[in-house]
């Protein structure tokens, strides 16, 4: 197992008396894949959103690549290494190409340097035939593939994917699983919130089962804190 890339200690979040998250420590190793399982409301999506800096939680300490990080004041440099993809991805108005190169443009890259990367991501996700289709006319599966291409083109070190195969038909689900499997094999750290058995059973997938905001089992065994 590779060294830890992200270590978060003491993640707590609650609404009134209702506990949403209570994770004493979460350690993600570089290049490993993790699937968060558990019933609806167990805290999977909230944990991903906290790690992505999209939702606030009390965190005792966080280290990324050995460097201390304040998740409450999320640093821009961490955003460049860690990408979150929604369960129902949002595509901006404009073209599919514009969507996929959005993050590259945000990083200040010029068209000549990002165009080959975008073309490669389009080919990888198999969305070449969709380039002339307005984003709002894409199906859920097509949107998911565009969103995965949009995330992958940025070459982040950590992917956070929230229910990437939920509500997809059989064909779209298989296409999404193939892309996710590719990401897991590409020596990236991938964390998914998911109920999909086929994803859970992917090779080298670590399973973290959550319940009532806590990680209850790790690869079927008790969690060592």
């Amino acid at each position: 197992m590779s060294g830890p890339i992200l270590v978060v200690e003491g993640i707590h979040k609650s609404y009134g008396t209702r506990r949403i998250l209570d994770v004493p420590v979460l350690t993600l190793a570089a290049g490993e894949s993790y699937v968060l399982t558990g019933e609806n409301g167990s805290g999977k999506s909230t944990l991903l959103r906290v790690l992505a800096g999209l939702e606030h939680a009390e965190v005792v300490a966080c280290r990324y690549d050995g460097r201390p990080v304040d998740l409450g004041n999320y640093p821009d440099w961490l955003r460049r290494d860690l990408i979150y993809v929604h369960q129902h991805p949002y595509l901006f108005r404009g073209s599919i190409f514009d969507n996929i190169c959005y993050g590259l443009r945000a990083r200040g890259l010029i068209k000549a340097s990002y165009e080959p990367l975008v073309r490669e991501a389009i080919a990888w996700a198999g969305v070449g035939a969709l380039l002339d289709v307005p984003p709002h006319k894409l199906s859920g599966g097509e949107k998911q593939r565009v969103a995965l291409a949009r995330a992958r083109v940025l070459q982040p070190r950590i992917f956070l994917l929230d229910e990437p195969t939920a509500n997809l038909d059989a064909e779209a689900r298989q296409q999404a699983i193939k892309l996710i499997s590719d990401l897991c094999d590409a020596n990236r750290t991938v964390v998914l919130a998911c109920h999909d058995r086929e994803i859970i059973e992917l090779p080298r997938m670590n399973r973290l089962n959550m319940g009532r905001g806590a990680i209850e089992t790790w690869n079927g065994g008790a969690v060592c804190v």
Binding site: A52, D76, R79, I83, V85, H86, P89, Y90, Y102, A106
Partner: peptide, 13 residues
């Protein structure tokens, strides 16, 4: 709300 979250997550200032 996903519009801003997506932009932020993709590294937009």
């Amino acid at each position: 709300p996903r519009a801003r979250e997506t932009a932020v997550s993709l590294g937009a200032s």
